[in-house]
Design a protein around this nucleic acid. Sequence first.
DNA 1: ATCTAATATATAGATATCTATGTATAAATG
DNA 2: CATTTATACATAGATATCTATATATTAGAT
Lengths: 160, 160
Amino acid sequence: MTEDMRAEPKSAGLDGDPIEFAVMTEIGIINQLAENLFQSHLPKGMTVAQFSVLNHLLRLDVEETISELASAMQVAQPTMSSTVRRLEDKGLIQLIHDPDDRRIRRVAVTAAGAQLRNNAVAALVPVAATLRQNIPPDIWQVILPQLTQIRVLLDQSRQP
Amino acid sequence: MTEDMRAEPKSAGLDGDPIEFAVMTEIGIINQLAENLFQSHLPKGMTVAQFSVLNHLLRLDVEETISELASAMQVAQPTMSSTVRRLEDKGLIQLIHDPDDRRIRRVAVTAAGAQLRNNAVAALVPVAATLRQNIPPDIWQVILPQLTQIRVLLDQSRQP
DNA sequence: ATCTAATATATAGATATCTATGTATAAATG
DNA sequence: CATTTATACATAGATATCTATATATTAGAT
């Protein structure tokens, strides 16, 4: 399954395509490999999407609505509704009705959710270490603002 | 839906996390935005995954097995089986049995598939142009080999 | 030659994702 | 105040993705 180092995929396998496509193809493959790698180090049943929600809320120490979470993660609202429901089913978050606006439910991480996230972060530390050791540190520093620039551009060219 | 320029997501919103995680988060968001953007310019019913298969086979002018395609796209074999089946349902590819090994079926693009792919490429050209115009060209040249380096590392640290 | 191991693909079940649409509530407008 | 518009969320239906497993076929090993 890893023995397919044939002729082309040396640079994402899109030699004849515009370089922008090649970058996007490479990003797509990295995203898949990284998600699989991260997932394999997360607790049983916990997905990257679910972990990201817990991590976001706990890191910023906030409670947010489903729509706010969807915007923060750049996913559609029904996608976040689904992820939040699964977290709720496991008792990792609670949905708190807003007393002033009954349309709104805010996502609050439970103690169980906080503990599980902390365990997950600890399990991911060696993964980050491996990445850090095998890629020159400058690369990470240089590539992040470039990616941010591309992300902002893509975000702007969305149709609202 | 785009008006969420609050405090944090200036650099993928992972300030407290290792920079490797921040890069991966940014890549995840770019991947989603790019897939949505590309998809919105593809013919009705055609997905990025399906287009990628057609494009791969036609660009290299080859026929490949499902497993070979899965390796090339870095997805699991059942994933590729599913994508190939949908392309077959639309008459865009044909599955050709190998006369010497009856386990194998090779994916061959039909004339309809080739035409549809060419139309899709044409529709994507202005998308690439927009990206090229809004990001300094050096960035694309610089970022691609860096991404490749990361992708190769991630590919190596897969558990087979 | 038979029995076992490896390979190619398919099937099942789960989550994430999208678009399109429905429902309830709140705000704005006349 | 009644009607309309906007907002927050849920539901439905579709594709992509994974892991785990089953089936069929080929290759290898006694």
